[in-house]
Structures are given as C-alpha cells and as structure tokens.
Write a protein that binds this DNA or RNA. Sequence first.
DNA 1: ACGCTAGGTGTACGCCGTACACTTGTCAAT
DNA 2: ATTGACAAGTGTACGGCGTACACCTAGCGT
Lengths: 236, 236
Amino acid sequence: MTQQLETPRRTPLNRARVLEAAVALADEVGLEALSMRRLAEALGVVPMALYKHVANKDELLDGMVDVVIGEIAPNAASAGWKDAVRLRVLSARQALLRHPWARHALETRTNRTPAVLKYTDEVIGMFLAGGFSVDLTHHVMHALGSRMWGFTQELFDAAAGSPEAVMPPEVQAAILQEMARRYPNILEVARVARHDDGSVVSYGCDDQFEFEFALDLMLDGFERLHGRDWTSGRGQ
Amino acid sequence: MTQQLETPRRTPLNRARVLEAAVALADEVGLEALSMRRLAEALGVVPMALYKHVANKDELLDGMVDVVIGEIAPNAASAGWKDAVRLRVLSARQALLRHPWARHALETRTNRTPAVLKYTDEVIGMFLAGGFSVDLTHHVMHALGSRMWGFTQELFDAAAGSPEAVMPPEVQAAILQEMARRYPNILEVARVARHDDGSVVSYGCDDQFEFEFALDLMLDGFERLHGRDWTSGRGQ
DNA sequence: ACGCTAGGTGTACGCCGTACACTTGTCAAT
DNA sequence: ATTGACAAGTGTACGGCGTACACCTAGCGT
C-alpha cells in the first residue's frame, strides 16, 4: 500500500532510458562525477539494476557517445563537398557543445560503435562524392582527425586569465609580472586575444571563430591538393 | 640486523625519483593501471609515503607530464620559422611516442605547469620571430592545437583491421561483409590504406607520414596567410 | 643530551565497479 | 486456476582506489 503510493509500479527501465538519464546526469555534474551508483540513484533504482541494461560502465559511456552523435544533424544534400563537410562538422560541434563531457568521452573510448562508424563513413563519403581520390581522402581524414567531431584541444585557452579572483590585487599583479618575465610571448598573445586590452580580467577567445579558422584552413588545403590531383605515391 | 640486510637504509625518496618511477611504471603498465598504491609498491614504500613528495595524484600526473616535456629537444636556432616549428613539433612527437600515456595525460590535465607554459611560449616565440603578427600567431596557435605536441586524435585508425584473430575465418568474412554493406566508404579507404590489398590482416597506416602530412598542410596554410598579411580584423 | 623535523608507517574512511545469489511481478502454456 | 519460465530489480559482499590523520623514528643542529 505504501509502496503503491510511493512507487506506483515504475514503468520499467530500458537501455534508452538509462542512456538518456546518464547523458542528462553527465550534463549536470560532469563525467568524472558520473558513477553507476549515482546514476542508479538518479533513476530511483539500486546500482546493480543498471547492469540489466548495460553490460558495464564502458558500454554505458559508449552508449552515451552514441546518443550525442545521434544529435548531429543528418547530411544535408548540399552543393559541393566543401560546404557539405563544413556544415556537418559545425553541426557536430553544436552537438558536442551541448554536452561538454562528450569531447573527452570521444577521445578516451576506443570508439568503434555503430554510430561512430556511421558518421565517419558519411564524412568519408562526402569527400569521395566530391571527386577526391580514395588515397587523398584517406590522408585528409587523418588530417581532419578530431576536428571531424567539431572540437580541438584547447590546450591554450585561459592560459593567463581568470586568476581565481580570490587573490588580493597586488598578488595578482606580482604573478602577472612574473609570468611576463618568464612567458613573454604567451602574454603578448593573450593581451591581443583579450578584447578589451585593459585589465587582467575577461580573457576571452571566440572559440567558434578559432574553430572555423582552423577548419577552413584545412578545407582550403584539401581543396588545393584535390585541385592539383595530389597523390601520396603510396595509395593503391 | 635483518633490517640492515634487507634495507640498508634506503636512500630517501625525493620528488624527482618519485616522478621518474611513475613515468617508468606508466610506460610499462599504462596510465590506467598506475595507482598510488602500485607506484609505492614499485618504490618499495608504503602508499602514504608518496604524499610527502607529491601533493596528490593530480599533481603527480602533472609532474609526469613535465618530465616528458623535459625530453623535448631544445629549440635549435634554425633558418626560418617553418623549419624551426616543424623540427620542434616533430621532436615533441618523438618524446610523446616514447611515453604513449603522455598524450592522454596532456589532453586530460588542465595543464598550466611551468614546463607546459615554457614550451608553449617558445612555440609562440618562433612564429613571432618569423615575423607573424601577434594576431595571426594567436589564431595559428589555436589551429595548431594539440598538433603542437606532436599528436592528433587517431579516431580513425584500425577502424577495420585486426579482428582479434580468435574468430574463425568464415565469421571474419561475414563481419567484413556486413561492414562493407553498412560502411562502404570506410572500407574503401581502409583497403587503400592497407599496403598489401590482399587479406584482412596487416592494416597499417604510416602514422608518421599522416602526422607530417597534416602538419605541413597547416604550416603551408600559415605561410600563405602570413604572406598576404592576413588579419582577423579583431586583433589589437 | 635534547628536541626539531623530514621521511616513512599503519589504520581507517568513503568512494568506486561489479560478481553473485536472491526475490518479485508478468504472462504464456497448461 | 496453476504453474513455471523469464525479465526486472534487490542485497550483500569483495577488492581496489585516493587520501586524511595520527604515529613513529633516524639524524641533525644546538
């Protein structure tokens, strides 16, 4: 009776619901804080119940990646290969931006899930459809690398800014001075990247701009190679 | 007395020895298998002893990354920015290839250790010394991204090959056929990438070639932009 | 001779993933 | 109506993890 009130016979879990909840939880608390126990709790269920729907945590993560990839807009039949790839990659980027943990998950896993293969296959298909040789396409795909998914390492960002705001100003200034002495080039670049070049705060790169800059650089390079019928001399 | 025989007053640990041992252990067993407990055991010491030399595991990993970066050849005063960057990056690649776990560690950490900053600063310095504007250098560094460290995502590799060798041939063939149906483009590219186009085995991309291909593509792009005094219209 | 300190120890806590044995609710076949 | 197979969820337990905290102890400067 109490049971009837509290849990009116929960509609049973299934793999899709588990994955969906995992994605939502990861969105909320991050990938590191996502544990089987915590996910189970969020679903109002005991941890081991999850194992009836996913084999283990690795498989859960693979499934989560597949969910995100499923959000990438399908291939719009577009004019040329260049626009087609560009649009697709930028769409992938949007999907990955909605799920900040997905980037890391994609990097980490050994990813050969159907969704990953399907997306990869489609991107390759765009180059081939654009008249690229199989050989060039192969190298192009390597060069594209993770940019295919709409992300790049951000090893660089916030290298200088956001000094946690807790330090008294004179300490901040001292640190900045020390950094300027040791890493003058970083600071010079950071100063330009900062749109208002006044204070220490508000470091900001326009990530979208940077991403498109790099993507277009590559696509232009591909176009040039394709135009001159480049070949590696090792294909075929 | 027994103690004297077994442990003749071990020379005391220090941070450098801990990091060195951690690097060696990670080289041997991989990053996931590297635990504080296991590292302590390898050093013949109790786990908590490590905490006298590193603050915690994160700091240990940062230190390990610094060790690897320390192995990158110093900046050879070279003719032009292009060769200088090229050599430096390829040297970084060599260092990272010696320590397969380092790539992942670099991606994962929030890396602002002195070694990371120093290397970054030096790479930036090469572009500036080559006459690049600060603005262009900034975008170029973003575009370079993790390639600066000599690696790229290998999301692609071994996508088809190495079917674990345990399956009977007819199962392998069936799988291959199913893959050919669903992912025809991947398979076509993989077939060319495989140097002997005969059997299923021996999938092999020349990673070094692929890396240099992509690196040169970017460097050429940078050169072209620099040559025409490209500006983002947002710098300065 | 003494006490400070750096380096190493031992115990313990709360997390984690998950193996394994169990209950329970559902429904088809009898 | 009874049964029994099966899918879904439970409970307990194990070994591993990072690390807080109190403790010991050797060696050194005084």
